[in-house]
């Protein structure tokens, strides 16, 4: 058998494997996108195969839609705060768990009981979002039966006849949701950063210690630069979570598909779903989908550009 034929056979073999996933990807990802673009120029109601072409009307309406603009703003707020808070907390905990201890004779180790902490911090990640929503629904419950209100009333900080309606307070609701996302995410990124930290050679830390670096210096001058790639990846992943938020907002807050009170926790996905399924404005909702797509594309490019740095090899 000739060498060339062998090579061809192998390429065919590989192509054979790629064909099916590619076809699936085209059918279930790319094709819906293309369709969405098409529908965004129509007045499709979502319940019928007939519709009229309306040009750019949907986009013109979208520009004036205050609810959607508010939702966009909330998404942007989350986009800033979710990654920043989650990554900072996860980095801090990961550092303490891996290199924050000062017990051993010259060795670099985590604080006491760090193995235990690592497992405990990971627990929230195991829960599905639906369970999380139920769990925090009970925490934020607006009467004395709620965990937070119950504790605050017992401590005498809250009047039992006027409990805090956490998810019904325009100024609190978004931050309450943010807390849930952060609580859920920190454990996972702690484990991710821990793994990255463990691949940092110990002698670097030891050298820093010998030079008299404190915890803070070790962290900012040694750990963070060596972990930059992981942090960058995490920021992109958390960006995904912040741009979505659909499950939590739609189940935990008031209104059809959530977003309440009075649109104060609205995110783009909830506005989209309400228009798509409840108001029968599916063409309009598709225009929102296209806007979301464009925004996330811009976002991912910006994120990767902004965080580009010189790599430190070790």
């Amino acid at each position: 058998m000739s060498h060339v034929a062998q090579g061809k056979g192998r390429n065919g073999f590989i192509a054979g494997f790629l064909l099916v996933p590619l076809a699936l990807y085209l059918t279930f990802v790319i094709w819906p996108y293309v369709q969405t673009f098409g529908y965004s120029f129509t007045n499709w109601t979502g319940q019928s195969p007939t519709f009229d072409f309306v040009g750019l009307d949907n986009y013109a309406l979208l520009l004036k839609d205050e609810v959607f603009r508010g939702a966009l703003w909330h998404n942007l707020l989350l986009l800033v705060f979710v990654p920043v808070i989650t990554i900072l907390l996860a980095l801090f905990f990961a550092f303490m768990v891996n290199a924050g201890g000062r017990g051993g004779a010259g060795g670099v180790a985590g604080v006491r009981g760090s193995a235990f902490y690592k497992i405990v911090y990971f627990f929230p990640q195991v829960l599905s979002l639906a369970i999380l929503a139920v769990l925090f629904g009970a925490v934020y419950r607006s009467d004395q039966g709620g965990l937070l209100n119950g504790v605050l009333v017992k401590l005498g900080l809250v009047d039992p006849t006027e409990p805090v309606e956490w998810l019904n307070e325009p100024r609190l609701v978004l931050w309450c949701l943010l807390l849930v996302v952060v609580w859920h995410g920190v454990g996972f990124y702690l484990v991710l950063f821990s793994a990255a930290m463990q691949s940092v050679p110990k002698d670097i830390y030891e050298a820093a210690l010998l030079d008299g670096a404190g915890r803070a210096q070790t962290f900012f001058k040694v750990t963070l630069p060596l972990l930059w790639d992981s942090v960058q990846t995490s920021a992109v992943y958390l960006g995904i979570a912040a741009m979505d938020m659909f499950v939590l907002v739609s189940t935990m807050t008031s209104g059809q598909f959530g977003g309440g009170p009075d649109h104060h926790s609205e995110v783009m996905a909830t506005v989209l779903m309400r228009n798509f399924l409840y108001f029968g404005k599916s063409g309009y909702a598709c225009a929102m989908g296209v806007v979301m797509l464009v925004l996330t594309m811009i976002l991912s490019v910006v994120t990767l550009r902004a965080t580009r740095r010189e790599r430190i090899e070790f």
Binding site: V29, P32, A285
Partner: peptide
């Protein structure tokens, strides 16, 4: 991951279209 950022949030809703 960057690709995921683009794909994930929108897929669920868009494919519903």
């Amino acid at each position: 991951a960057a690709l995921g950022l683009v794909v994930v949030p929108s897929t669920g809703f868009l494919s519903a279209c």
